[in-house]
Write a protein that binds this DNA or RNA. Structure first.
Lengths: 248, 248
DNA sequence: CGACTAGTTGAACGACGTCAACCGTTGTGG
DNA sequence: CCACAACGGTTGACGTCGTTCAACTAGTCG
């Protein structure tokens, strides 16, 4: 079921255009827009790919939220990154035969698979696109470094504040948040997996943030009531997102 | 002060050869070996590059140990990765204008700088090398994901055991460890920055590991006395290192 | 010899985890 | 339509891991 979308809304075109350091040529844009996408839907909690898989395709998030995670042998889970529409969460599979992480759906998720062959053919025809995609993976790396600093060296209150700041900014960029409010159907248990703390403690920190008037998270919706305060609490500096047009 | 080394010991050749999925051609090896290197030496604790720099070159570790780190605003430091000889710690600077991390020398460090221009020219002439270098950065990403799991979800005892396992394996690969013993002139304070714990606690965990007969760390030397036990304690599975020839 | 640095250890404290109870909502089947 | 199970959120009590502070030791360098 190949699904062709109009070029300007095609996820690859939007993403690469926003990431690359040069303006895409017509043929390059065309090549991206005509990449054959295999669309698939996942319910929350379902896994898309698993550690030790050897995929021959990678995928883009079309809608919904995905999470990269790893688990220890005794089953403790650590979420390493969230992926918003436009992201290419397992792009490394193109050059790394066996996956070292799993990716699951956080909310209802629609993704588009692209075969490695098709990508390699495109790169052969349009070598500049390699730089652009490479850059996309490097930006993901930058996010993960900030995540490491956040989880390693900030206590849970600023840590959670930082996470909410990042999510809000990234969702705003792709048009999924407005007025500092976004759809975020995530359980407190899952939040704990991302922050490296227990769900009980998540609950307490959420309460603190709520009673401080910074945010509310309920009914699957995150609302930031005091952006300046949240940003300050999380020591949030968006430089590491490598945005090209800075706002807020 | 350009410094030309014999091709088989040239750090780029060794590294890319060990990382790439295809055998390098003569001209490719030649191009790597003749990359002009600007050699520089750093004392322990000195910074090589700093967050917010906009470098026009990147570097390879020639000898010694380097560390990538970030700091919070109030000065708490988190080490994100260690780099052994052959590694390309800031290769992302080629496609990411402004650095989002700093790199410092852990022990006496010798590095070789290569200008971005020279690299780009080489990639233009030998497009397959792009894949190889890309793959090198992806493997670094894999290490950082395991690091995130380790620091996020393991307690300090297994966490430290895991770190020592990784360092030992990586140093063995580049010939800097033998008999499960290696030069590791690192203070307990710095170890704490890597593991996200205080130096006092590092001391106590080291004592536990020592009294359990697993390792000793003194006089700038790490000795593993019971590799099987250390590996078990750290739940260490080297898959994430993406080695091509597995040993031990 | 004194000053400095890294390591070592104890004691008190704090952050976060664990356990357990309870509540509210949702969904399902009799 | 109601009963009830299942699940996520909320809260308290208590335990543990790791931090902080502080004192002391040992090695090194001038």
């Amino acid at each position: 079921m190949a699904d062709l979308l109009p070029a300007d809304t095609h996820p690859f075109v939007r993403k690469i255009e926003s990431v690359s350091l040069f303006a895409l040529s017509g043929p390059e844009r065309e090549a991206l827009a005509t990449l054959p996408l295999q669309v698939a839907d996942y319910a929350a909690q379902q896994d898309v790919v698993l550690e030790h898989d050897r995929p021959n395709r990678c995928f883009a998030v079309l809608s919904g939220l995905a999470a990269t995670y790893k688990t220890t042998r005794d089953g403790r889970r650590q979420v390493l990154a969230y992926h918003v529409p436009g992201d290419l969460p397992d792009f490394q599979s193109l050059n790394l035969e066996v996956l070292d992480f799993s990716i699951c759906a956080v909310s209802a998720l629609r993704i588009g698979f692209v075969g490695h062959d098709a990508l390699r053919a495109m790169f052969h025809a349009h070598p500049r696109l390699v730089d652009a995609f490479w850059r996309a993976t490097l930006i993901e790396g930058s996010l993960s470094r900030e995540w490491m600093l956040n989880n390693g060296r900030r206590e849970s209150y600023p840590r959670m504040a930082h996470l909410f700041c990042e999510l809000m900014v990234r969702l705003e960029i792709v048009g999924l948040a407005s007025d500092h409010s976004c759809h975020l159907p995530i359980t407190q248990y899952e939040l704990g997996d991302a922050l490296g703390i227990s769900s009980v403690h998540v609950n307490r920190i959420l309460k603190e943030l709520r009673e401080g008037g910074l945010i509310t998270l309920s009914g699957g919706r995150l609302k930031v009531h005091d952006w300046a305060a949240l940003r300050k609490a999380g020591e949030f500096d968006p430089t590491y997102l490598h945005l090209r047009s800075t706002d807020s």
